[in-house]
Design a protein around this nucleic acid. Structure first.
Lengths: 113, 113
DNA sequence: TCAATTGTTCGTAAGTAATCGAACTATTAA
DNA sequence: TTAATAGTTCGATTACTTACGAACAATTGA
């Protein structure tokens, strides 16, 4: 596998982060990570093909929103909260809070409490 | 001219707002309005065709970020700050603050202080 | 070694977005 | 009425996005 590219903190662009967060699937993934901590792609219960999820994970990674590391055959995604908070204070938190307050993903079986 | 459609507050979608704000031109327009108050399209010094600016204004309006009213031949854009703050507290403020703190539009002559 | 699991990459298709210029509408001013 | 100003809409182009399945690669477990 080729090395996964992550932008340096200073190279994270606000517009790119907002774009990455403007998709319902990606918003859901990010909110899940923030709620439950880092996790592998296969833990996200989304109604899309795995190749499509892989694409979304890449979009999140290349925008600087998540960090991806390999663990066995899995790719563990974690939020780059510190980088985002330093660069764009309050942006990630307010977005995720707004998401959780009212925009629960329509495609998720709401059974996780 | 046909009536301009604005979504009701309750129909403003987080993902759509983030998408609207994920473009450098639109981010600039929104930050200008927030800094200097409501203003007409022709006051934005952006290096794009007027038809393109019109498209961006429409994207901002239809996502619920701005309100547009006619005044003579002009279209006055204002920020829907209250609607956005009620629906997504802190989101608009933190985004614009992050933008102004470091993401000044590269296409603008930085002569306004 | 063989199979299962996890994810990536590739090829493709459909849809969407940004952009321009030209033509148009509406308003204001002369 | 005519001209100027401010925007919108249309048609076309180009590029990107999302999506899928198939094929591939890497790791783990039997």
């Amino acid at each position: 596998m080729k090395l996964l590219h992550h932008p340096d903190r200073k190279d994270i662009q606000l517009a790119s982060v907002l774009y990455a967060l403007s998709d319902p699937i990606r918003l859901y993934v990010v909110s899940e990570i923030r709620k439950h901590g880092e996790q592998a792609c296969n833990s996200f219960k989304v109604p899309i093909a795995k190749s499509t999820l892989s694409h979304h994970a890449r979009t999140l990674r290349e925008s600087g929103v998540v960090h991806t590391r390999a663990q066995g055959t899995q790719r563990i995604l974690s939020l780059r909260e510190e980088d985002l908070n330093v660069r764009f204070p309050g942006v990630l938190d307010s977005i995720i809070e707004a998401y959780e307050a009212g925009e629960a993903a329509a495609f998720v079986e709401k059974s996780e409490g």
